[in-house]
Amino acid sequence: MAKLPSQRVESLGGFVVHGIPFPANTDEESLQFLKKMAPIQIEQEYKIMYLHSYGQDSPWFAGLTNKRLLASRDAKSGYTYANPRGHDVYSGDATNWIDITNVPAKIHAFTVCYFGSEEFLPDCPFVLALIEFEGVNTLLLTRIMGVDPAAPALDWIGMEVQPRFLRNSKLKPTDVYFVPKGSE
């Protein structure tokens, strides 16, 4: 039987208090007593909207919107990055775009996240994986669908996979995800 939770989930919020206990007189004895006072804690909200630029990596996201997975390649050495990279780290030269949408791919490493950062808690459990592509020197971080997050197995490493794209792009790297090869 699964272990039942013994603690209630708590949020930071609490009652608004009108009036904080404080000595009626600020005589020496009362002021000395203030050193024993428990701390006052308040809520401070902080919201912000950033205008984030993908800069030179923008074509990669445009590719996802058009159901194409791009990669970056150094023209001379052929060294290829699954994540976009404007310049090759070995030659320092600007890279070229290549299309790896149909390149054979498999799972290099993975995990199932049963918890996550606040933003991703609603998605839990979800499968994170690093994908290796034939002829590509580096990996790609992505999510996997079509495997059972309740039954992770080391055999998933090496599984052949293929990309699938969101129909309605969000212009995020999650516009592409991977499924076992041959999935419906």
């Binding site: 993908y54 990596d57 918890f115 996550g116 991703f120 979800f126 994170l128 971080l141 790297p173 999650t174």
Partner: peptide, 12 residues
């Protein structure tokens, strides 16, 4: 741009 939005979580 590339890692955090996929499911940013160091334990992952």
């Amino acid at each position: 741009s590339f890692d955090y939005p996929v499911g940013g979580f160091y334990s992952g």
